[in-house]
């Protein structure tokens, strides 16, 4: 695999039209080449299917974080109102009265979900403050879309180039990526 040597050879197709990118990505994948990634300044509808990306499981993590928040809130409130030393009596009002416990439970569930999920997103996407990105093209965050294909076999270069060109690439270039 390409991971063994320190150099990763890539072939890049540079585009300015999301529709052409979708077609090119489908064709590259159909021809059996290994797409590293597609870099784009804005989300392209349907690119995940064209690349064969699985649906993210972040939704499951959101649910788990929500449950954590809910449990934290309930345990905290029960402990503080009842469990700790004595039952708190405020104006003789009923303690552990479920409706009045709903707001805090709800807010903490939301808080845990939001922070938990965003943190998970940063970890899974390997994002961190101050990290220097490896850009394929300086304009990939502006107005260019780059399809990066792993070049395991130098002989494949022509075939990929052909697919890129026939789908309207502005430019095709090869690049060595040192890991």
């Amino acid at each position: 695999m390409s991971m063994k040597n320190n150099n990763q050879k890539l072939i890049l197709g540079i585009y300015d039209d999301p529709d052409k990118v979708l077609a090119a990505t489908r064709n590259v994948r159909k021809a059996g080449f290994d797409i590293k990634d597609v870099y784009t300044p804005f989300p392209i509808h349907g690119i995940d299917k064209a690349m064969g990306i699985q649906r993210s499981r972040l939704g499951i993590s959101a649910f788990l974080f929500a449950m954590t928040g809910l449990l934290t809130a309930v345990v905290m409130m029960v402990y503080m109102s009842w469990g700790d030393d004595w039952e708190i009596n405020i104006g003789g009002k009923p303690n552990l009265h479920i409706p009045t416990y709903i707001p805090v439970t709800f807010e903490l569930s939301i808080l845990f979900t939001a922070f938990g999920m965003v943190a998970t997103f940063f970890i899974v996407s390997k994002m961190a403050h101050g990290k220097n990105p490896t850009l394929m093209d300086i304009r990939q965050t502006d107005d260019r879309i780059v399809i990066a294909v792993n070049l395991h076999n130098t002989g494949d270069s022509d075939a990929i180039n052909k697919i890129f060109q026939s789908n309207g690439a502005l430019e095709v270039k090869e690049r060595d990526l040192s890991i």
């Binding site: 990634d37 997103f121 996407s125 403050h129 101050g130 990290k131 220097n132 990105p133 990939q140």
Partner: peptide, 26 residues
């Protein structure tokens, strides 16, 4: 510093859109 190494990867966008949708939902 604040861009957190964002490179516009379609894999990241895929997750990003899901996170945005769930955040909007909650």
């Amino acid at each position: 510093f604040f861009a957190m190494g964002w490179d516009g990867s379609a894999r990241t966008w895929n997750r990003y859109e899901l996170v945005s949708l769930i955040l909007a939902g909650i």
